[in-house]
Design a protein around this nucleic acid. Structure first.
Ligand code: MN
Ligand code: MN
Ligand code: ZN
Ligand code: ZN
Lengths: 142, 142
DNA sequence: CTCCTTATTGCAACTTTTTGCAATTGCCTA
DNA sequence: TAGGCAATTGCAAAAAGTTGCAATAAGGAG
C-alpha cells in the first residue's frame, strides 16, 4: 500500500484534504521511521517537492500530530522531533552521552491508569521522553 | 535568607561563580514560582539588570538546570519553560483547554523504579509533562 | 589590596520557528 | 466536467533561539 492510499482516507475521514505537501512529509516520516527535526523534514521533503516552504513544514507537522499520524517527541537537545505514528513507546535518553533507548508503553500502563484515576484526566500521549544516565555513564559517575 | 545567600554557596561548591546576571535570573524564578519562558525571564530580568542579553539568559537557564537550581519543563505549546527547583512534581496538561495540574512524584515512584530496573538507566529528571484531556473536556468529547 | 587566571558575558551574525494575509487549490456539488 | 467555497499554502516580516569570539570580571593567591 502506498503512502497516499494509506493516509488519504484517514485525513478525509476527519474532514481534511490530502495535498502534495502533506503527502511528501508523510512519505519522509514513513520511510525514515525514526525521529526527524522540522529542519530535517524540510530538507528531505524539499527534494521531493521544490517550492515547499518552512512555514508549511512546521504547520504540517503540527497538523499531523494533532491527527495522530505523527508523534512529537522531546529529543536530547530540548527540541521537538517527529516520527510516523506506529507502536506506542517512550524514550530514555542519557544526559551525559546522548545514548537513547525505547521502552514499550506496556511498562507504564499501570502507572498511566493510576495517574488517570487520581487526576481525572484521560491521558492521550504515549510518547514520553525520560532523561537519566545510561548504565555506562553511571560507572563514570563514582 | 536572600537569594544571594541561598544560591551563591551552591554554585561555589560546584566550582562556579555567582554573577549579577545569574542572581537576577534566580531572583525572578524564585519569586515567581511558576513556569517562565526564556523570553519572560529575559523581560523581567532586564528590568533588574539593563544590559542583560538574550544569549546570557538562554545560557544561564540551561546552566541552572544542569546544576539543579532550576528545572526545565515542556509546556502546552511544545516549548521549554523553567521554574525554580522545589519539590519534585510532574504536570498534566489538557490538550483542548490548556488546563494544567500538578502531580506529586510519589505517584510515579514505583513506575520509575520499574523503568530503572528494566532499562539499567538511572532516571534523573523529576519534571515530566503528560498531555491528555481534563475532566471537563472529556464530557465535550462524547 | 592587587594581580592573575579563566569562567562568564556581550556582541553580532546566523539559524530556527512563528504569524498574518493574500493567493492557490483540493474536492464537493451540480 | 466545470464552478465554487473553504482549507491550505506561499510569502515576507517578525520573533525566538544559537553560536563563535573578543572583552570583562569573579574570586583565589600572594
Ligand atoms: Mn519515538
Ligand atoms: Mn513544574
Ligand atoms: Zn550515557
Ligand atoms: Zn480541558
Amino acid at each position: 500500500m502506498t503512502c497516499a492510499e494509506e493516509y488519504t482516507p484517514q485525513l478525509r475521514a476527519r474532514g481534511y484534504r490530502m495535498t502534495p505537501q502533506r503527502l511528501a512529509i508523510l512519505h519522509i516520516l514513513h520511510h525514515n521511521g525514526g525521529h526527524l527535526s522540522p529542519v530535517e523534514v524540510f530538507d528531505a521533503a524539499r527534494r521531493e517537492l521544490p517550492g515547499l516552504t518552512e512555514a508549511t513544514v512546521y504547520r504540517t507537522l503540527e497538523f499531523l500530530a494533532e491527527n495522530h499520524l505523527a508523534r512529537p517527541a522531546l529529543n536530547g537537545n530540548g527540541h521537538i522531533a517527529y516520527e510516523i505514528a506506529r507502536h506506542e513507546h517512550h524514550h530514555l535518553i542519557c544526559r551525559r552521552c546522548g545514548n537513547e533507548m525505547e521502552v514499550e508503553h506496556a511498562i507504564l500502563k499501570s502507572m498511566y491508569a493510576r495517574l488517570e484515576s487520581e487526576s481525572g484526566y484521560r491521558l492521550t500521549d504515549r510518547h514520553l521522553t525520560f532523561f537519566g544516565l545510561c548504565p555506562d555513564c553511571q560507572k563514570g559517575e563514582l
